[in-house]
Design a protein around this nucleic acid. Structure first.
Lengths: 204, 204
DNA sequence: GTTAAAATCACCCTGCGGGGTGATGTCCGG
DNA sequence: CCGGACATCACCCCGCAGGGTGATTTTAAC
């Protein structure tokens, strides 16, 4: 069991327990099973799960999509829909609530697992875009930057010219050019502007 | 056929064509089929699809995950993985590249459709490149930018060179230089890097 | 119909930025 | 002790960026 607590919102007890068993097989903790929207709201408020599996057809008000909209607006919890309907109309209503996924029943266990994992990870990333350290950056590069190169890159990201870099780091302009040249090759860019844009896109 | 152009990266021709047929059944346009990473890169650069279906096991370098990391960092295109592997190791490598989804083979058509739709919608909603309008910008400047100057500035913010600006806006390189010169004066900067940093600091 | 702002283009010039090549000294790990 | 990674510096080349000056045309405003 890890610390991820999942709430299952599903009106069919058989399916709900089936999902619960599957989740436990993947070392998730089942935070609760809610057969309708009202119960789901109670669970959300009192039990604060880390993730919600949301059946769309609950047979009563509010349905899964209304619930999804609520989770989006009032709570800060990632969720994915479960549904046997994949028609354009339902999907269109659903996607406007920005779910992290949409699984069509019947779905297999592996698909459930990967979907939850991706959803959790992306949600965490989107909520908190983290500042980029040299380790994070190097993890994404084929050839890694040296500490010195990274220092200079940070200043380049701040719009400094080569001359300013030389002053600030007490090295000659020629040395700056060498470092900059090398780090450009590693980043696979050809200009300061490109380097800055790249860092921005990489979530710096 | 709608306007969504999907690139399929899959080394098994049979599976690739099966997927292509399925996509066309859902009114997507198949932008291309790439059997390996090298071909995929060519397609990405020359064909600029709106979406990428990415098989992880390509049998050669780079594999799907390396390609995913590239798409994330260098392009601005949503993608989902296709894989028969759903082990924790592969999944962990994969999720760090922030895919919009992860489908486990074999997957059914409906699941593919809903996943793509959700992915496209979320990607569009969560992408907000430069949420700064010309009005907002001019409100904070002493001398105001003209509409044309603002258009060029947006592309400069994206790392484009003067030559690229000339092409994209169907004007001569000399005209670009004139506009850029003028907008630099208005922004009170002396280089592209400075302009980009300024925009970033002005609420981006 | 005159005027002003915006958009278009040309030419020249200077200098920094980007790329290639090569070299030296340091530090660390095998 | 030696080799590799890192940091330091020098020189050369050249293209593009940045800046100055000037000019024409289109558009909108008055």
């Amino acid at each position: 069991m890890n610390e991820i607590r999942v709430l299952i919102v599903e009106d069919e007890p058989l399916i709900a327990h089936d999902i619960a068993a599957t989740l436990q097989g993947f070392d998730y903790t089942v935070a609760g099973i809610a057969p309708n929207g009202a119960k789901a709201l109670v669970e959300l408020q009192q039990n604060t799960p880390d993730f919600v599996l949301l059946d769309i057809s609950l047979g009563s008000e509010p349905d899964g999509i209304q619930l999804g909209a609520l989770i989006r607006d009032r709570f800060d919890i990632p969720f994915v829909y479960l549904s046997s309907h994949s028609d354009a109309g339902t999907l269109d209503r659903a996607k406007h609530t920005l779910p992290m996924g949409y699984l069509v029943k019947p779905f297999d266990e592996k698909g459930l697992f990967t979907t939850i994992e991706i959803a959790l990870f992306n949600f965490a990333r989107l909520r908190k875009p983290l500042r980029l350290g040299i380790e994070d950056l190097n993890a994404r590069l084929l050839s890694k930057l040296t500490p010195r190169e990274f220092e200079l890159l940070v200043d380049i990201y701040d719009g400094k010219t080569n001359g300013q870099l030389a002053e600030r780091h007490f090295i000659s302009a020629n040395t700056v050019k060498t470092h900059v040249k090398n780090l450009y090759a590693k980043l696979n860019v050809q200009s300061r502007a490109e380097a800055i844009v790249l860092l921005r896109k990489m979530g710096k």
